[in-house]
Amino acid sequence: MNMINTPKVDKVGIEDRISRITKRSLKKEAKMEGLKMALNMVDLTTLEGMDTNNKVSQMCYKAMHLHDEHPGLPTVAAVCVYPNFVKLAVNSLKGSGVKVASVATAFPSGHSTLDIKIKDTKLAVDSGANEVDMVISRGKFHSGDFNFVYDEIASIKEACGKARLKVILETGELGNLDNVRKASDIAMLAGADFIKTSTGKIKPAATLPVTLVMLEAIKDYYYKTGIMIGMKPAGGISNAKLALQYLLLVKETLGIKWLDNHWFRFGASSLANDLLMQIMKQTTGSYQSANYFSKD
């Protein structure tokens, strides 16, 4: 594999496959299982300038107690916060099995020196983060300085130690699907454990076509190296129906092995509640109201 001549993407083919996926729907037991699986794959996220300790600890409580009046629900996969909240999140989630992910490397723009980005990463990891979500340098990528992007990811991977590294491509800024494919390949070659679509700060964020391109990249990489890479679409996935379509896409592109929160995640804040509302709808038969579900 090399980073210069990455495969070109058949845009029409991608759109055709997506349009077929979005016309399908899951019913009854399969839907219920799908909803619970999606819930278990959520990275409950708060990445706002106005985040406070209380907001973060409240979100951690929510991660463990999604909707206590309905027993048997899974927890979410992880919470995702800024590095300075990692310690608090780790303490709040002790013993629950919910992981702590932290954004790092001058999130969301990624404009800083490597030295500071490494320190940012170490702060997160030393505070106890299980996972680090880094952003790539999109400016360098667009200037054609792919080596810089690669080296940066490799350095951050080293700084992560045991923590798993998710590499955010910020596909909304990459311009086209060919670039998405190229950035995915660079990230995987440089040592990413996960590739992730977006920061959630740029629109468009995650979309089905972009996700399919990244899943295809993961598939090719797996066939060449035998190494499994995780996928995390993030931003803009706010309802259960869409989440189920993502699961269909993963199942059909990568197979059942990837249908596990070790390999697939949703970065979202409002998705969890919509999934809960749909689960309650399936259980009780009545459409639900947001008034009866905790906000954070």
Partner: peptide
């Protein structure tokens, strides 16, 4: 009936 049962 769906309206009657709708929680919202």
């Amino acid at each position: 009936p769906h309206l009657g049962k709708h929680m919202d």
